[in-house]
Structure formats: structure tokens, C-alpha cells
Design a protein around this nucleic acid. Structure first.
Ligand SMILES: [Mn+2]
Ligand SMILES: [Mn+2]
Ligand SMILES: [Zn+2]
Ligand SMILES: [Zn+2]
Lengths: 140, 140
DNA sequence: TAGCAAATGCAATACTATTGCATTACCGCA
DNA sequence: TGCGGTAATGCAATAGTATTGCATTTGCTA
């Protein structure tokens, strides 16, 4: 099932309304390979002759993040759709420092090892949504 | 040797001038346990009856980052002194989601494992400056 | 299809970051 | 120790990002 359709299902199942702005934002994020900022989305929507207030975009993104349908990519100040909707657990990113394309993955062993280190250092580890930087094949 | 003194040495050895603003910023970062933003630093300096333009603070922080004397903590939008000045290689953070205190560490095995995964996914891995979130002892 | 609560749009505002240029001050050298 | 050249700073203007309160609209349920 497509990202948009799946997300709409989740919205409904949790009692959130399926509105035009929410669908627009989902479609914008769906269509992007690299992270998009709230204002990126604003422009994307405009280029289709439509309009969304940026405040609305911020609020929609907040909601989608809280549902783990999209993730914020800190190193880029943008948002991407979750690439592992069906897989629970900790999600990680490889981000190309040059062009921003990224790949999401999850790794049991890595997660475990990190948790161990955290505990050893007196921290109570929580979900990991980490980013590693590198260069994608195109940008090398 | 203290963080400030060490940093001043590095500045000199690379041909950068040791100026009042640079020393002020170093002292502000030195004194902080959690990440501080450029404007945080501005306020800290003011409370000592002094003044630094925020543009200068941004520029100083850029420089210190490029020399790996301080790191930017993305999840907090702030800067901290490097806690492993003598140890080369990839530096990582455990950040308390609640209060922001953090601990820097480095882990050979983790680094290796991550690089492997990156290569397997078609990325050329670079330095890792990752952040994991959790709860510190005080905040549990 | 009417009514209600949730969501949006708007306006105002706060916060964060960057640029160009005139002025200052650090540091090497006399 | 004082001078000169250049790197660094301060200032002003501007751009970009994010948040709040409130009036209005709209999706959904009954
Ligand atoms: Mn994910
Ligand atoms: Mn470090
Ligand atoms: Zn790339
Ligand atoms: Zn804490």
C-alpha cells in the first residue's frame, strides 16, 4: 500500500480527521527523495496552484511525526516519509552530506550495542532515531 | 590542560588570532554542561557586564566547530565543548531528552559496524557525529 | 443534513541565521 | 615598545524559521 493511503488509514484509526491540508502534505512528502522543509512543502503545493498556510504545515508535520509516519532529519532541517512503516523498533538514516538523499534502515545488533553503552554510562536509553552522514553513489 | 587553554593553543598553532570574543565564547562553552545556543552565549556574556555581537558568536562557533573543539548538537540546537579532545576518530553523544545533559563517547566497534552497513547500502561513510537520546540518571 | 469539535487560516510576533561593509585590534616585525 | 598590515569584529539590514491566539471553516457522527 502507498505511503499516503497507509497514512490516511492510520489517521482515521486514531480518530484524526482526514483533511485536504493533511493529504497535501502527505503527497508532498511522498514525492520527495530528500528531506523537505515546511517551506519547501509550501512551495511545492503552490506550484500545483493550491495553497496551504505555513502554520498548518508545521502542525500537520508535528502530528505525522508523533505518529511516526514521517521523521525529522535534523542534519537537514527537513522531513521525510518513514521508509519502514511496517517494521517497528529504532529507525536510522544514512544521509548524503552533499545532496541529502537518504536511506532508512534498522539494525538489531547496532541498537543493542548502543543501548549497552548507554546503560554503562548511566543513561536510560530510549528510541534511537540517529543519522550518519556519508556520500551517496551519485555524489562520490 | 583546561579546554580553554588547549583551544587557545590550537588556535595559535593554526594561525588564528586569539581574540577577546573567541576567549569569551570558549569560556561560555567551557562552563556549560548542556548545549548552549549562540543567543544563550550572548546572554551569558552579558550577565558578566560584557557584550558580544551575535554575528561574531556565530562566526566563532563556526570556526571552533571546524577545528573540532566544539560540536553542534543537532537535537538541541546548541553547542558543547568536545569531551574527547585527545582521542581522534568518531565522536558520539548520549543526550538526555529532558534536561539536555550529555556525555560524549567513542566506540570502535560501533563505528566499524556502522561503516559496514553504510557500504552495504551503497554509501561512502564519513565521520560519524551521531546523537542518541535517552534519560539521564537525574531525570528518570 | 444539521451540529459539534477539530482543524485551518490569518495576523502578529519571536526567534534564528546570514550578508556586506566600515572599523578595530591582534600579532609579527622593526 | 611601537608600528603596520590583515584578520576579525561590530553594526545595520535583511532573510529565513517557528510559535501563539483567535476567528472561521470543515470533516465527521448521529
Ligand atoms: Mn521510520
Ligand atoms: Mn569530540
Ligand atoms: Zn548524494
Ligand atoms: Zn536529564
Amino acid at each position: 500500500m502507498s505511503f499516503v493511503k497507509y497514512s490516511i488509514q492510520v489517521l482515521r484509526s486514531k480518530g484524526y480527521k482526514v483533511t485536504r491540508p493533511r493529504k497535501e502534505v502527505l503527497e508532498a512528502v511522498e514525492s520527495a527523495t530528500a528531506p523537505v522543509s515546511p517551506y519547501d512543502i509550501s512551495r511545492m503545493v503552490q506550484q500545483q496552484g493550491k495553497h496551504l498556510d505555513h502554520v498548518t504545515i508545521y502542525r500537520v508535520l508535528d502530528l505525522l511525526c508523533s505518529l511516526n509516519l514521517v521523521h525529522k532529519v535534523l542534519s537537514r532541517g527537513g522531513f521525510v516519509k518513514c521508509g519502514l512503516l511496517d517494521e517497528p523498533g529504532c529507525h536510522r538514516f544514512l544521509v548524503c552530506r552533499e545532496c541529502g538523499v537518504l536511506q532508512e534502515f534498522t539494525d538489531e545488533a547496532l541498537c543493542y550495542q548502543e543501548s549497552q553503552i548507554a546503560r554503562r554510562m548511566g543513561f536510560y536509553p530510549e528510541h534511537h532515531l540517529t543519522e550518519s552522514s556519508g556520500l551517496c553513489q551519485r555524489c562520490r
